[in-house]
Every structure is written in structure tokens, then in C-alpha cells.
Amino acid sequence: MRSQRKIRHEYSVSALADLSLDVRSRILITLLFIISIVTTAPYQLLMFLIYAGLISWGAALARISLVTVFGRALIVLPFSLVVALGVPFFTGGETVVFFGLELSIAGLWTLAGVVMKSFLSASTLVLLITVTPINLLMQGLRGLGVPVLLIDLLNLTYRYLFVMLEEAMTLRQAAIARGYRPKWLPQAVIVGRLAGTLFLRSFYRAENIYAAMRLRGYKQVMPSDALPKYEWTSIMMVVLFVFMLISIRLYLGCLK
């Protein structure tokens, strides 16, 4: 049993087989990369291509298909479009006529920038999450100074998230089976009753969880593996990555 667990653990850690980069460096690099994406001006299209290239390179190193990385990131597009689609119609300045619609050029650039930035940032995050198991990610965040209580709560929430989601879907399924076909707003009360039941179930579950935690010797803090020492080579990887990003942006004149 113990050996089985260890093998699985090692397997998941070495998902980024060729690099096996320290999780703290992974988090820092992801964060800095996203900050770089967000601070790039919309009309610097070459820079956005380079970002997409770097993400693809990371996915190739981790042996993950690009469809997974970019496909999962598509989820951000509906929000981006809903919020920003109106912008080209209402921003002033020079306009361009497109299929009989008068669109502001500045507004179109804002729209394009927002869509590219949110999509690439989400892809970067998907890459990190796909190659890093959750427990390792939480250890890394803890190593970077996130308070232990918050980490424990995050771990517990993530653990029971899918349980509660399944309960919620079961409740909704049952309501539909009883003929719930919502059409107008006051029917939100029915959703509210489902949610009330859901909360009571989560409350009773918390009591059981606490009993189980206490039986296993819970004392204020959840037990967790100690992180390995933060090697200077891993820190150097972050420095090198930042150096690379800055030099590319300087070379292309993309650093404001």
C-alpha cells in the first residue's frame, strides 16, 4: 500500500519529466509570465505570438497536447466577448466601416487585446494546473508564504468541492424529475430551497469530517509533507526566465 502510493506520487511529480522544476519556481514563473502577458500593449501582435509559442513549448516539454491546454482555456472567451464586444461601437476616435457597421479602431484594439490576454493567461494557468498535482501546488503556495490556515482550508474545500457539486447536480436532477421547468424569476425560490438543503447537508458533513479528523489526531494544523529545500538552481530558473522575457521585450521594443 505504502509503496503503491509512493510510486503514484513520484509519477505525478515527474509529469514535467525533463525539467522536474521545483513547484515554487513553477508558480513564480507562471505568475511572472501572466504579468508579462497582461502588461503587453494590444498592438504588439508579435509578442503575443511569442507567448503562444512559449506556452506550446511548455506543453511539449510536459508532453501534453496543445488541444488540452488551449481547449480548456476557451472557457474565458464568453465573458471576454460579453464585456468587451460593445467597446468598438462606443469608443471614439477614428472609425472603420465593416459590413456596414462603424467601428472605432481604438475600440477594436481594446477588444483584441482583452481577448488575447485573457485567453493566453488562462492557457498558462491550465498548463500549470495540468502538470502539477494539487497537493504539490498547495505545498508550493505554503512554501511561498501563504498562511497555513488558508492552505488547509483550500485543501479541504477542494476535497469536498466535487462532493458538494455532485450533491447539487443530484438535487437539480431530482427537481427536474419532479417537473421543475424554470421560466420566470420568482422560481428562483425553488433553487433557494435546493440550496438550503445543500447547505444543511454540507453542515452535517462538516460534523462527520471533524469527527474523522479528530480520530486521526488533528491538532490545529493539518499534517503535510515538508517541502524539499529550495535549491539555488531552481531560483536561477526563475531569474533566467525573467531575464529571457525582458530581453525579448527589449529587443522587440515592447517594454514601455
Partner: peptide
């Protein structure tokens, strides 16, 4: 502690 976590899972 677990109650906070399950309530967060409930909100989600």
C-alpha cells in the same frame, strides 16, 4: 475548520 471548508464548497 471543516465547516468553513464545506460552506465554501456549498457556495461553489
Amino acid at each position: 475548520v471543516p465547516l468553513l471548508a464545506t460552506t465554501a464548497a456549498f457556495v461553489f
